[in-house]
Amino acid sequence: MAKVLLIFASMSGNTEMMADAVAKGVKEAGGDIEVIDIMDGPDVSVLEEYEGILLGAYTWGDGELPDDFLDFYDEMDDIDLTGKKSAAFGSCDSAYPEYGAAVDILLDKLKERGAETVLDGLKVELTPNKDEEEECHSFGKKFVSFL
Rank of each mutant, 00 (worst) to 15 (best):
V4R: 03
L5T: 12
L5Q: 11
L6T: 04
L6Y: 06
I7G: 05
I7S: 04
F8Q: 05
F8I: 11
F8Y: 15
A9Q: 07
S10M: 07
S10T: 12
M11A: 06
M11P: 00
N14G: 01
E16H: 09
M18S: 00
A23R: 14
A23G: 14
G25T: 12
V26P: 13
V26K: 03
K27E: 09
G30A: 15
G30W: 09
G30S: 12
G30I: 12
G30C: 12
E34D: 14
M39W: 12
M39D: 05
D40L: 07
P42G: 10
P42F: 03
V44C: 01
S45R: 09
S45L: 05
L47N: 04
E48Y: 00
E49C: 09
Y50Q: 03
Y50H: 03
E51L: 09
G52A: 07
I53W: 04
I53L: 10
L54M: 08
L55Y: 03
G56T: 02
Y58W: 14
T59K: 07
W60V: 06
G63W: 13
E64R: 13
E64Q: 15
D67A: 14
D67V: 10
D68A: 12
D68W: 06
F69M: 15
F69L: 12
L70H: 08
L70R: 07
F72S: 04
D74Y: 08
E75H: 08
E75S: 11
D77R: 09
D77K: 06
I79H: 11
K84F: 05
K84C: 10
A87K: 07
A87N: 05
F89N: 05
F89E: 07
G90D: 02
S91Q: 00
S94C: 00
S94E: 13
E98A: 13
E98F: 03
G100I: 02
A101R: 03
A101F: 00
A102Q: 02
A102Y: 03
V103N: 00
V103H: 01
D104I: 00
L106F: 03
L106N: 06
D108R: 07
K109V: 08
K109F: 09
L110G: 05
E112W: 04
E112A: 13
R113I: 02
R113T: 08
G114F: 13
A115G: 14
A115C: 11
T117D: 11
V118W: 06
V118R: 10
L119H: 10
D120H: 00
G121V: 13
G121C: 10
G121R: 06
L122I: 10
L122H: 05
L126H: 01
